[in-house]
């Protein structure tokens, strides 16, 4: 056990968007049993993840790679008898982890794409040509300026790129 007081961490989670229902959990294991990832690897078990969080194991939860192994399929959330919004709780935990600097490379890539192009998958010259060949209309550009304003208003840029005003 770390020094973390379980209740503090629990309250931190329940006060976040997505994390509200974590305390409903009574550890029945339905989530683990229905989880496609848990069926594939021992590295991930949503029931244990929630257990760790409720016991206040903040570091183990937020610093490890477990929270990034959820495939967001929502099977667990759908079938949870206590209406724990498991997938949403994991989003809340990821949101917290990101703020503490636990940012997997692929997520940095996504954020960079979003900030610069307004899209996660930038279009290539090759695809642009292909589109014309198929008779598809040219892809309309995203309004990156408006998006940047929104990302600044939510603090997304700071969350991801830490330094004031920094952007890719």
């Amino acid at each position: 056990m770390t020094e973390e007081k379980p209740l503090d961490f629990t309250r931190e989670i329940t006060s976040r968007l997505g994390g509200e229902t974590i305390t409903h959990c009574y550890q029945c294991g339905t989530c683990a049993s229905t989880c496609p990832v848990a069926r594939t690897t021992e590295r991930y078990n949503p029931r244990q993840l929630i257990r760790l969080a409720l016991l206040g194991q903040r570091d183990e939860v937020l610093k490890g790679d477990t929270i990034w192994l959820c495939a967001s399929c929502y099977n667990c959330q759908e079938r949870c008898p206590q209406k724990v919004e498991v997938a949403d709780v994991i989003y809340a935990l990821r949101n917290m982890a990101i703020r503490e600097g636990n940012v997997p490379a692929i997520y940095m890539e996504f954020a960079t794409g979003l900030m610069s192009e307004g899209r996660l998958a930038p279009i290539s010259k090759f695809l642009e040509k292909k589109r014309t060949e198929y008779g598809l209309p040219p892809l309309k550009p995203a309004n990156v300026e408006a998006l940047k304003i929104i990302l600044a208003a939510t603090g997304f840029d700071k969350i991801m790129f830490k330094k004031e005003g920094a952007s890719p």
């Binding site: 976040r16 968007l17 997505g18 990034w68 967001s72 949403d88 989003y91 809340a92 990821r94 949101n95 990101i98 692929i106 997520y107 996504f110 954020a111 794409g113 979003l114 307004g118 899209r119 996660l120 209309p137 309309k140 550009p141 995203a142 309004n143 990156v144 408006a146 998006l147 929104i150 990302l151 208003a153 939510t154 603090g155 997304f156 969350i159 991801m160």
Partner: peptide
């Protein structure tokens, strides 16, 4: 076709910040 539409803010962006995703 909508003018200026951006990314919808799917799970990868929700993982970074749920509130931002809702706003986008």
């Amino acid at each position: 076709d909508l003018e200026g539409a951006t990314c919808c803010a799917p799970p990868p962006i929700q993982s970074i910040d749920l509130e931002t995703s809702l706003a986008i």
